[in-house]
Design a protein around this nucleic acid. Structure first.
Lengths: 208, 208
DNA sequence: AATAATCTGTTGCATTTGCAACAACCTTTT
DNA sequence: AAAAGGTTGTTGCAAATGCAACAGATTATT
């Protein structure tokens, strides 16, 4: 979630001068893109918030990833799967940079300053994404809800100390940890009862 | 897991001529690296197999990731966490490329052919890694063992058709899907009984 | 300010899962 | 060939989790 560079600032006052790269605006609720075919599509979220939503065979709506400023996403990162449908939905007004990964490689050999900047920003954006993904995998591979919660709180406490505000709501936290919301709520209550944590909405204090 | 480029071939007959990049050999069972401090360490597994193992507070040994030829790993991709210890262990003879991410950036501006090749290989290695991680997250975020199994089988069937051999053993599959081995075995039996799949050891046929 | 929509905590219940133990099988080593 | 070490499938049982339903709180909309 932490990004050290700020590509968005760079782009905000910058109009793409290259036909291969698009900057598009989306209103809340709009579909930014879907993952259906292999187009090597690569996107950077310049501003706003968006969810990657999977609709499974039962029609269940499952939030698979959450994107914010500087997040990267796109078909290129996904194995396309006929059994479920992936949609990136804007949760607020969004500004998005879209391009094909093939194009970026070609174009970067030219001296377009826009691409130049994009290319130098790439590695950090990508490494940051991998860090996020590995953290999440580490959490998701824990067997119990309690371990998931404590593991996640521990990560946050490294950054913010014993008291911190969750970066999302309780409902979204349950999604992030891939557990049932009400069950997680139950487990939170137990953690409170056992004096492991204090909780006020999405503000958490660790008591250990 | 699928990589289109082959950096290992390139490196096999190549001795690093740059002091910042090391190629090291490890015997089966040896520790390749640990994730303890933030050194921006970045590794590429040239040949062999290795596991990223987490030892949690109970001393449980949990395989978090599995690496094979062309896999990338390193501290740089992990939020270091005081509560558990991460160790990369060689499961067979391994040849590993190690360097600091900072160095690679500096050095790449020079015209060292080794770095040049490394740099051009980077994006694909990284994208391939992200694809693997997102696939796994998609599976891990499913609530039931059955959904995890069927989701994983579905991914494999896209590549290999209705009959395929799992890339790892049943025990390792349970690790990959973060479920108890015996419970998973139970669920596999049910799937067999219900004629969803045929299974012979780690060879699976989908019957739907 | 009133209303609607969403979020949160709680609880009962059925199901699933993890855990432990064990036997059969397979692989590797001696 | 025998022994040792690891893998796999099975099962009983206890514990954890998902699901559903609901009420109160909070936030957004009109």
């Amino acid at each position: 979630m932490q990004n050290n560079i700020d590509i968005s600032k760079f782009i905000k006052d910058f109009e793409s001068n290259c036909s291969k790269v698009q900057i598009k605006d989306f209103e809340k609720g709009e579909t930014i893109t879907t993952f259906l075919v292999n187009r090597n599509q690569f996107c950077i979220l310049i501003s706003g918030n968006a969810d990657l939503v999977r609709y499974d065979y039962n029609g269940n709506r499952i939030v698979t990833e959450k994107f914010s400023e500087n997040s990267i996403f796109g078909e290129i990162f996904y194995q396309i799967n006929t059994n479920s449908e992936f949609v990136v939905e804007a949760r607020s007004k969004c500004k998005v940079l879209l391009f094909s990964y093939d194009d970026i490689n070609e174009k970067c050999k030219s001296h377009c300053s826009f691409h130049q900047k994009l290319l130098t920003s790439f590695p950090q954006l990508i490494i940051s994404k991998i860090t996020d993904l590995t953290s999440r995998i580490e959490l998701l591979s824990r067997r119990s809800t309690r371990d998931k919660l404590l593991g996640y709180f521990n990560l946050l406490s490294i950054q913010y100390g014993k008291t911190f505000t969750l970066p999302f709501s309780i409902t979204e936290l349950a999604n992030y940890l891939a557990v049932d919301r009400s069950s997680m709520s139950r487990e939170l209550s137990i953690l409170k009862k056992e004096k492991f944590i204090k909780q006020d909405r999405n503000r958490i204090t660790l008591l250990y």
